[in-house]
Computed example of a mutant assay.
Amino acid sequence: MTDAPLVLDFADERCREVDLAGGKGASLASMTQNGLPVPPGFVITSTAFVEAVDGAALIKHIQAEDLEAARAVVAATPPPRELIKEHYDRLNASSVAVRSSACAEDGDDASYAGQQETYLFVESFDDVMEKVVECWLSFFSDRALFYRLHKGSLDDINMAVVVQVMVDATKAGVMFTVDPVNGRKDRLVIEAALGVGEHVVSGEVTPDYYTVDRKGAVKKARVVAEQILSESELAELAKLGLHLADLNGCPQDIEWAYDDAGLYMLQSRPVTAF
């Protein structure tokens, strides 16, 4: 056993450590502690999984390519229920998002985006507990293991899970603080759709597409129906996006959402390729 924490609030300094909180959790903690608008939440750390799981059996099954047996080990692993309940009650949320956060994800040379699961509008504590295990299991899907095999990290079983107040988004999407096609640093690209941003990330809907300058002024737009983002919203997004790029020291790929109260930042990771 180690002294590493099993559950950490976004406001906790240690939550910025990727080894504990994963790429997504560390990003959310960093944004929170830098004063950006982030829905409150906490991380069930990689330590919680590593200490609870039968790691020797899990790795043995993975190396033997017996994924069914590996997943059975994970499915039987109990999350730290009382600690999670304490942090969950503090959120006082009607629904939460439960999001996988791999410790190897979202680095400059590897993006695990989309490799693990996200569950939206989770409404009860028992469902949260179930979804935490589902997130752990998604780290051992055929697709995720194939990806890790090609990255040379099959023995990596460090996996964190984010639990975060759900934004009931009216509009949401993604933003790149450089043009991801040609790398132009004087341009940002913003995609937007009505409702939650997962529809944009997963490709379920065709979003509005805006190329803007560093002030948020539209240089090029492809609007599907009625324009989703106003000029002031585009300017607000550009300002916060460039602030995040400055904080991180490199161009960012950002997930964002608006609800009736305003703008929230849901994720920020380095742009991995142009």
Results as ranks from 00 to 15, higher is better:
Tyr112Pro: 08
Ala261Tyr: 06
Ile59Asp: 09
Ala56Asp: 11
Ser230Tyr: 06
Tyr264His: 06
Lys151Asn: 08
Arg143Thr: 04
Tyr88Pro: 10
Leu266His: 14
Leu91Ala: 01
Met166His: 11
Val122Met: 08
Glu117His: 03
Gly35Tyr: 12
Tyr112Gln: 11
Trp136Phe: 02
Glu17Pro: 08
Asn34Met: 13
Val223Gly: 06
Thr170Lys: 12
Asp260Glu: 13
Lys85Tyr: 08
Met166Pro: 12
Gly262Met: 03
His199Thr: 13
Ala104Glu: 14
Gln115Pro: 03
Ser268His: 01
Ala52Ile: 03
Met31Ile: 00
Tyr147Gln: 07
Lys215Met: 02
Val200Tyr: 09
Val132Trp: 07
Val224Phe: 07
Leu234Tyr: 07
Leu234Ser: 04
Val73Gly: 04
Asp142Lys: 11
Met265Ser: 05
Arg143Ser: 07
Val53Asn: 02
Leu234His: 04
Thr206Phe: 11
Tyr147His: 04
Ala172Arg: 10
Lys24His: 01
Val271Met: 06
Val162His: 11
Phe42Thr: 08
Asp142Cys: 06
Asp253Lys: 11
Cys250Ser: 10
Ala172Phe: 15
Lys24Gln: 07
Trp136Val: 00
Tyr264Glu: 00
Ala192Lys: 10
Ser27Gln: 00
Phe176Trp: 15
Val223Glu: 14
Asp213His: 06
Gln115Arg: 12
Pro37Asn: 02
Ile44Thr: 09
Lys239Glu: 13
Phe125Lys: 05
Tyr119Asn: 00
Ala110Ser: 15
Glu17Val: 10
Ile62Gln: 03
Leu244His: 02
Phe125Thr: 04
Ala4Ser: 13
Ala4Gln: 12
Asp155Ile: 04
Glu17Lys: 14
Gln227Arg: 13
Gly41Ile: 06
Gly55Phe: 11
Val271Gln: 02
Tyr112Asn: 10
Lys185Val: 05
Gly114Ile: 02
Pro251Thr: 03
Glu51Met: 06
Leu83His: 13
Ser100His: 03
Ser94Cys: 01
Gly249Thr: 00
Asp259His: 01
Ala93Asp: 06
Val200Phe: 15
Gln227Asn: 07
Ala4Tyr: 11
Ala225Cys: 05
Arg14Lys: 13
Ala70Phe: 02
Ala110Asp: 10
Pro80His: 08
Asp106Tyr: 05
Ala11Ile: 08
Pro80Gln: 08
Gly23Leu: 10
Glu236Val: 01
Val7Trp: 04
Met129Leu: 13
Pro39Ser: 14
Ala97Lys: 00
Tyr119Trp: 05
Ala261Leu: 04
Asp213Lys: 14
Gly152Met: 04
Asp12His: 13
Leu58Glu: 00
